[in-house]
Design a protein around this nucleic acid. Structure first.
Lengths: 148, 148
DNA sequence: ATCATATAGTGCGATATCGTACTATATGGA
DNA sequence: TCCATATAGTACGATATCGCACTATATGAT
């Protein structure tokens, strides 16, 4: 492992730790025992629109479809989403947000408002905005090289 | 949620996705069904030295101590580590790497060599080295503001 | 139209993660 | 010394994640 490799290795190490710390932080703030993975799905549907198939959502998060089946079952039991049969594909389903689901997403977002603002104050929002383009490059690359 | 908050939110979103994608990538390459969390502990002990207590390791990864108990039990069953009583504190233990554990860490490292080099070639190693200082700032901040 | 193959979703079992409660030991003050 | 409190680790149960196998439906070739 040469110097370049070490840098990349350390990069993913930092990513992992930041993910762990920030997830724990968000988790502690989320209302009503909502899990981060549940919020992520609600947020995805709000941002990109609902009516997506379970498989499409699983692919978006790069998790196995069995995992998404479980997550969606929890969200449905809590009445944050509802599942309908797919219009043209009898094998498939489509996922819709309920009013309660949209409300929960808003509540979750605002529950994170405090920590986010604190971080922006302490570290400066530029730090994050400047990192974003590079992170997006890495993310896009990984997304298109899943079988590397 | 204002524009600054949105940038921070998107930042942590990117971090989460990159973590998911890179973990999946590493996981698929790790030898012998080794889990990423197991490798992380072995790697930690190699890099920072063994003889640490389970609690110290749990704190380093910011996971609950019960999680670390489980992880260490798996590593011990596989003979990658051994646990010894603490010299001066009867409540505590210390964790040591075995030769097999050190060997497994080396094998795991080299199993990731291919993808890492590929990424360095495709994206440029500078991309990662330039991001590192900022990421370290964020990580250190989160680490010292766990109860935010 | 038939059939081989691919795809969407689920059931099930294994493992990882985590919260709560418990035991054993340590520590500091009366 | 005695005791209240804090700390290290674990047992146990709940949930999340994931791989494998299965069913139902779709698609494409003949």
């Amino acid at each position: 492992m040469n110097t370049e490799d070490k840098a990349l290795f350390q990069f993913f190490n930092e990513i992992g730790i930041i993910n762990q710390l920030s997830s724990a932080l968000f988790q502690a703030r989320l209302p009503d025992g909502l899990h981060v993975s549940h919020f992520a799905v609600l947020n995805h549907l709000v941002r990109l629109g609902d009516g997506k198939t379970p498989l499409a959502i699983a692919n978006a998060f790069q998790v196995p479809k069995t995992t998404m089946t479980h997550t969606l079952a929890v969200l449905e039991k809590r009445h944050f989403i509802r599942m309908a049969p797919h219009e043209t594909d009898g094998r498939s389903k489509v996922v819709f947000l309920t009013d309660a689901g949209r409300q929960m997403q808003r509540d979750a977002i605002s529950s994170m408002d405090g920590p986010l603002r604190q971080m922006a104050d302490d570290l400066g929002a530029e730090l994050f905005t400047e990192l974003l383009p590079a992170l997006e490059r890495v993310r896009t690359y990984l997304d298109t090289h899943r079988d590397m």
